[in-house]
Nucleic acid binder design. Structure first.
Lengths: 347, 347
DNA sequence: CTGTTAGCGCCTTCAG
DNA sequence: CTGAAGGCGCTAACAG
């Protein structure tokens, strides 16, 4: 292990009152394991009498088939998907996770959860662990632009779908937001409301969403003939406290912005706090909708979309690939799915 | 299948480019599978020469041990925990999930996620699926007070920990909030601030947290010699829209409450919306802290605690039990852990 | 209708 | 130091 983690699948020794096996049921019902297997799977060709008896015994013993052994024997996978998100505490990711869970549950599949905490090392560990567990596929919200470990070769052909990030140098599917379009539109709103000095609170520069949103901001400004200003658009952060500080710095400028676009919900909330604390009249806009956004007591323009749908679409794409791989087909070209955004006005 | 779900572990047929097995590596390295196994596990007793060669071949083939088969052979579990929550879209549960994930990751274990959507049938399905997968244990936020299906699970050697709910007729561990104490304290705050007509927005009557919080409210009133009023404390709901309506009804009373205690974050937000829409001066208090609670422009008293800690404690309790079962020890008496709450004042 | 054989991928045990 | 046998729990395929 290169990590600080004890063991991939450490766990404990077997439980004391071991769960009954097919053999136990067979012994108790005085038939062969095969008969039990057939009965419990509803296979044809078991007399009603024994069928009855086997079922009875199985129930009284609390028998449950061991899906692990079952799947091993059947040479098929366990119907398990790995989901790696950067920060489950952010409602964006928890709703995404919910979308994935729901869509997969409809297919009888389950989700193995991994939180990378924005740490690329941790992300790689999780991915490796998931490979060893022979999962059917992965949905990953990458922590950085390093996606090398997610390529088909690295993952041994295990399908991977990226969420909210364009794959870099790897041929995998991805579900994206209209980061550029949404930001562009929101920024234009600000401009057409008469704002010419518009601050931008960005995400770390190397992130896909961050750069796309910045691009959208730049495009809107350019169209309107407004020059870019480094002092107005230089801040990059992803937590509320840092965003609040950055906003204070913007407001402290000799010629402060009359409006601010925040690149995600953390930045929007941080900016809101600073603006409110100062009693400033700075117009605020941002990417991501969030609960109570309508109740903050100041006008707010947000780029809204459904994070759950993003998760659902990622799951759909992944299931497609899994089916494709299962059919032994050659993997087709990488797919892109874009979740559209809409502008909502609050306050 | 009694459910509408396709199959417990449906999934697809095996992937096309099958992942290499120990045997494949052995063949390519011209040694026996045993030697490969030993080498890759870092077992003693393999000459440096073969060791080198095997590692080389394994890497070039992209070999990854099949943890599933490994664990089957070792007769041990996969280091997997099942987590069943009622609604991952509620920040309370997603933070709880994060706590569970983090605490377990420290032990090299992983979390299998299940969202019951408050549906007891779905909860039972999930639990059964988790049993079949031979997980090491379960953390469950039960959808109802029916916990009968969880007893047999534990008997079969799969430890269960309940979160935010007192076990009913089953001997399992549980992590609870100080529902009674928190509500009692908050209600007393309202009373000592001069409020005598205090509305109560409750959760469905059969839930543990709901009834404990109601009890706390009742206790505070009783102590102060304030009679209970059915018209003030009869509403029970768990979503924002219903809470908003209930609050409107309270405000429409001939003699409306001067303060309201809301039994969870959904109710608090619903109440907030109604109060604000009416421009009422009703004093608001509630269970659960939430982001932006300080920014709503009205005084707010909340019963706060760390949901992540709740998840973490549940994981710790569960790991204890797993270790205990692993050591072949007799299971001790059910444990209770209470997460304390504190009052926070906003606005 | 029921049982036997064999093996999924791996590892413990025992021989060489 | 290395290999062969056997089996974890289950089920196809083939007897009887």
């Amino acid at each position: 292990m290169t990590s600080t983690e004890p063991e991939p699948a450490a766990a404990a020794t077997p439980a004391a009152p071991a769960q009954p096996t097919l053999r136990d049921v067979a012994l108790a019902a005085r038939v062969s394991p095969m008969t039990v297997s057939r009965t419990l799977r509803g296979d044809e060709g078991v007399s009603e009498a024994t069928r009855q008896r086997v079922r009875e015994v199985a129930r009284s013993l609390g028998y449950r088939p061991n899906e692990v052994a079952r799947n091993l024997r059947l040479g098929r996978s366990d119907g398990l998907i790995g989901l790696v998100v950067t920060n489950l505490a952010n409602p964006f990711y928890s709703q995404l996770a919910l979308g994935v869970e729901e869509a997969l549950a409809e297919q009888g599949m389950r989700v193995l959860l991994g939180n990378s905490g924005e740490d690329p090392t941790r992300e790689r560990q999780l991915v490796h662990d998931f490979i060893s567990r022979r999962l059917d596929g992965l949905v990953v919200v990458p922590a950085t632009h390093h996606h090398g470990h997610l390529g088909p070769v690295q993952t041994l052909g295990m399908p991977v779908v990226l969420a909210a990030s364009l794959p870099v140098k790897v041929d995998v599917d991805a579900v994206l937001l209209d980061d550029f379009g949404g930001t562009w539109e929101a920024t234009r709103h600000l401009i057409s409301a008469g704002h010419h000095r518009i601050g931008f609170l960005g995400l770390p520069a190397a992130t896909w969403t961050g750069s796309e949103r910045y691009r959208g901001y730049c495009a809107a400004l350019e169209e309107a003939g407004i020059p870019l200003s480094a002092e107005l658009s230089g801040y990059r952060q992803r937590d509320v406290a840092a965003a609040e500080k950055a906003t204070e710095a913007l407001l402290d400028l000799p010629d402060p912005p009359t409006a601010i676009f925040a690149a995600n919900n953390r930045n929007t909330i941080g900016a809101y706090r600073a603006i409110r604390a100062r009693g400033a009249t700075t117009r605020l806009a941002g990417f991501d909708d969030f609960e109570l956004a309508d109740s903050l007591g100041l006008p707010l323009t947000l780029v809204a979309y459904d994070p759950r749908e993003l998760g659902r679409e990622a799951a759909v794409l992944l299931c497609d690939r899994i089916a494709e791989a299962g059919a032994g087909a050659e993997p087709g070209a990488p797919r892109r799915k874009v979740i559209s955004t809409r502008i909502v006005e609050y306050g």
